[in-house]
Design a protein around this nucleic acid. Structure first.
Lengths: 236, 236
DNA sequence: GCGCACAATATTGTATACAATCCTGGTTGT
DNA sequence: ACAACCAGGATTGTATACAATATTGTGCGC
């Protein structure tokens, strides 16, 4: 909640509040892929009409964070394996050079902000709040694009990271995620030293690491979930 | 209208029809940057309620093709100089490597489709329909991303090209645009030969050409438009 | 004639009512 | 027991009514 700034494409304020809250919940893995987001349910929770909820959901749908099936409702998205690859390939095209650019533009304040981010990330991890750590980790990448003074790319990365969060929820296999803050720490060092080339290399390998830490050849765990639900449910 | 496929993030069918129509009109420079898009006006034209129009406008706003100012209405976007640079810088990060990838995946059918595109582009140009030629030229780039089997990147490029169209409307200076189809023709050749490296190079230089064909240091022509409107209008 | 305040109008924002569609559960027939 | 079918209920899609805000027009004082 430090300076997330939901970006507010436009739309009404309440709608942005709701889409921001849902987005945050998804980033922090408090809303699992496949979860149904009923309109009445949300309008009750947030105390607004379905009109507003609908606006918020459409916004999230456009970011492909949720999927709206006609006459069926909105569900937290379940990126396919193909999409998972595509998202990381896109990130690998955008982020390394952006990190290089960030190294050129970074001010001491920027470095301080990044360090603060990693500190919070560590704190969240120590507190066992894995979701929050992941969310902060994503914001770190967006922050770098902002430092590079590339708002357009930052916007794109923002969306890609949201989807990455879903992908991680579905396909992650590695247990320890502290490699994260290590890599981020090294990146800050390179950016702070204005070493663009190194920053680009580090970002590249960081993304490759993430990409390769996914279960590439397996089905998403959703089906297991569904199966277990069918097994252990109120079979009456 | 060949196979544009509005991509339909979701939302209702009518809304997609309207946002598609508006998007097309903007691509073809039939709707100038700054034009106001009133909700009642559009609901009259398309014979649907404002609810649907609103959905369509929000979709376009999310693509940053239009800008919705709270309580003021929707206007065709006027990208700033900074945004113009950012958009082309993003494209330069994404498209060259995507072209390389397309060269790996292209089938004979794909090549035929691309050739067809360029032919239509030429035809539109000969017919003096500059807007349609520009629109087709943009679709060409999207088609390449599709051929590369990178739907995610294709989606991103789709949005960037829409914004590029607005940027061209505002900042274009060069008179002749037939360099376009020349460059596209060369690209098809490289892709058809499965020469990924060359395709990447060609796309890179093509984008640099486009980028450098903009009036980088001048104010958008909108102000000129406004002035000329005030000058040559029904001074009554 | 000019500028300001205020009313009239138009436009957008939000909520609600109604229509269309889908899902659930029970009933019936085999 | 099982399948198909047909209500009934719940959920989403669309239109419309009303509220809030901005814009325009008018009149007054100077």
């Amino acid at each position: 909640m430090t300076l997330t700034k939901p970006k507010s494409v436009s739309a009404t304020a309440s709608a942005n509040t709701i889409s921001g809250a849902l987005s945050q919940a998804i980033h922090e893995h408090r809303l699992a892929p496949g979860t149904k987001l009923g309109e009445d349910e949300l309008s009750d929770i947030y105390g607004v009409s379905r009109t507003i909820v609908r606006t918020a959901l459409q916004s999230l749908a456009h970011q492909q964070i949720i999927e709206i099936k006609r006459n069926r409702g909105a569900y937290v998205a379940q990126p396919s394996l193909t999409e998972a690859h595509e998202v990381f390939e896109a990130r690998e095209l955008l982020e390394p050079r952006t990190a290089r650019s960030a190294a050129r533009h970074a001010t001491p304040d920027d470095i301080a902000l990044l360090n603060d981010h990693v500190t919070q990330e560590h704190a969240a991890m120590d507190a066992g709040d894995r979701g929050r750590a992941l969310s902060l980790s994503g914001q770190f990448h967006i922050e770098i694009a902002r430092i590079a003074q590339q708002q357009t790319i930052a916007d794109i990365i923002n969306v890609l990271i949201a989807r990455s969060s879903l992908i991680i929820a579905l396909y992650w296999r590695r247990e320890n995620a502290l490699c994260e803050s290590q890599a981020h720490h090294a990146l800050i060092k390179a950016i702070g030293d204005n070493d663009g080339v190194r920053a680009e290399e580090l970002m590249q390998s960081h993304l490759v690491d993430l990409h390769s830490a996914l279960n590439l050849n397996e089905l998403p765990v959703v089906e297991q979930d569904l199966r277990s639900m069918l097994m252990g449910e109120k079979k009456r």
